[in-house]
Measured scan of single mutants.
Amino acid sequence: QKEELKEKAKEAVKRGNKDKARELLKRAGISEEEAKKIIKKIE
């Protein structure tokens, strides 16, 4: 489940939808700070 949400978040970032990505990562139980780092890494 968590990995699936991370994959979806990756796709969202690639489409330029960072808010959606952050939302998905939060749903995966990832903190706001972690989510920001992950999104930065994907960009």
Rank of each mutant, 00 (worst) to 15 (best):
residue 4 E to T: 10
residue 38 I to H: 02
residue 18 K to Y: 15
residue 9 A to K: 01
residue 40 K to V: 10
residue 18 K to M: 14
residue 43 E to I: 11
residue 1 Q to P: 09
residue 23 E to T: 00
residue 2 K to T: 12
residue 22 R to G: 11
residue 17 N to E: 15
residue 11 E to I: 08
residue 37 K to D: 12
residue 1 Q to V: 11
residue 22 R to W: 12
residue 1 Q to R: 12
residue 24 L to T: 02
residue 1 Q to A: 13
residue 36 K to E: 15
residue 40 K to C: 10
residue 6 K to Q: 11
residue 14 K to T: 07
residue 18 K to T: 13
residue 18 K to S: 09
residue 34 E to S: 03
residue 7 E to N: 11
residue 9 A to G: 02
residue 35 A to T: 06
residue 2 K to V: 14
residue 22 R to S: 10
residue 22 R to Q: 11
residue 38 I to S: 01
residue 7 E to F: 06
residue 25 L to F: 03
residue 15 R to L: 12
residue 1 Q to E: 12
residue 23 E to S: 04
residue 34 E to C: 10
residue 21 A to W: 07
residue 5 L to R: 04
residue 39 I to V: 05
residue 6 K to A: 09
residue 16 G to W: 00
residue 27 R to E: 15
residue 2 K to I: 15
residue 4 E to L: 12
residue 24 L to Y: 06
residue 38 I to T: 02
residue 35 A to R: 02
residue 43 E to W: 09
residue 27 R to W: 05
residue 23 E to D: 13
residue 39 I to A: 01
residue 23 E to M: 03
residue 35 A to D: 00
residue 42 I to H: 04
residue 25 L to N: 06
residue 42 I to V: 09
residue 14 K to G: 06
residue 19 D to R: 09
residue 36 K to I: 14
residue 25 L to S: 02
residue 27 R to Y: 04
residue 30 I to L: 13
residue 7 E to I: 08
residue 40 K to N: 12
residue 33 E to S: 09
residue 32 E to L: 08
residue 23 E to P: 00
residue 23 E to C: 07
residue 42 I to P: 00
residue 43 E to T: 06
residue 32 E to H: 06
residue 7 E to P: 02
residue 15 R to C: 14
residue 20 K to C: 13
residue 41 K to C: 13
residue 38 I to W: 07
residue 40 K to F: 09
residue 43 E to S: 08
residue 10 K to I: 14
residue 3 E to Q: 09
residue 40 K to W: 10
residue 28 A to Q: 01
residue 39 I to H: 00
residue 27 R to M: 13
residue 17 N to L: 12
residue 38 I to V: 05
residue 31 S to G: 09
residue 31 S to C: 04
residue 35 A to Y: 04
residue 39 I to Q: 00
residue 27 R to Q: 15
residue 20 K to I: 12
residue 38 I to Y: 06
residue 9 A to W: 06
residue 8 K to L: 14
residue 42 I to Q: 05
residue 43 E to L: 12
residue 16 G to M: 04
residue 26 K to G: 15
residue 9 A to M: 04
residue 33 E to R: 10
residue 6 K to D: 03
residue 25 L to D: 11
residue 8 K to P: 01
residue 43 E to M: 11
residue 12 A to N: 04
residue 37 K to T: 09
residue 34 E to P: 00
residue 24 L to D: 15
residue 8 K to M: 14
residue 30 I to H: 07
residue 40 K to L: 12
residue 32 E to W: 09
residue 25 L to W: 00
residue 24 L to G: 04
residue 28 A to M: 07
residue 43 E to K: 05
residue 19 D to C: 11
residue 27 R to K: 14
residue 10 K to A: 11
residue 2 K to N: 11
residue 39 I to W: 00
residue 25 L to K: 03
residue 12 A to P: 02
residue 33 E to K: 09
residue 9 A to N: 02
residue 4 E to D: 12
residue 7 E to M: 10
residue 39 I to C: 06
residue 40 K to A: 14
residue 3 E to V: 06
residue 38 I to G: 00
residue 23 E to K: 02
residue 12 A to Q: 09
residue 26 K to R: 11
residue 42 I to A: 10
residue 16 G to S: 02
residue 39 I to K: 00
residue 18 K to Q: 09
residue 14 K to F: 05
residue 10 K to P: 02
residue 7 E to S: 09
residue 9 A to H: 01
residue 28 A to T: 03
residue 2 K to G: 09
residue 15 R to K: 10
residue 8 K to T: 05
residue 1 Q to F: 13
residue 27 R to H: 11
residue 4 E to S: 11
residue 39 I to L: 08
residue 33 E to A: 10
residue 28 A to I: 05
residue 13 V to I: 12
residue 37 K to S: 10
residue 12 A to S: 05
residue 13 V to A: 08
residue 21 A to S: 00
residue 8 K to E: 11
residue 9 A to C: 02
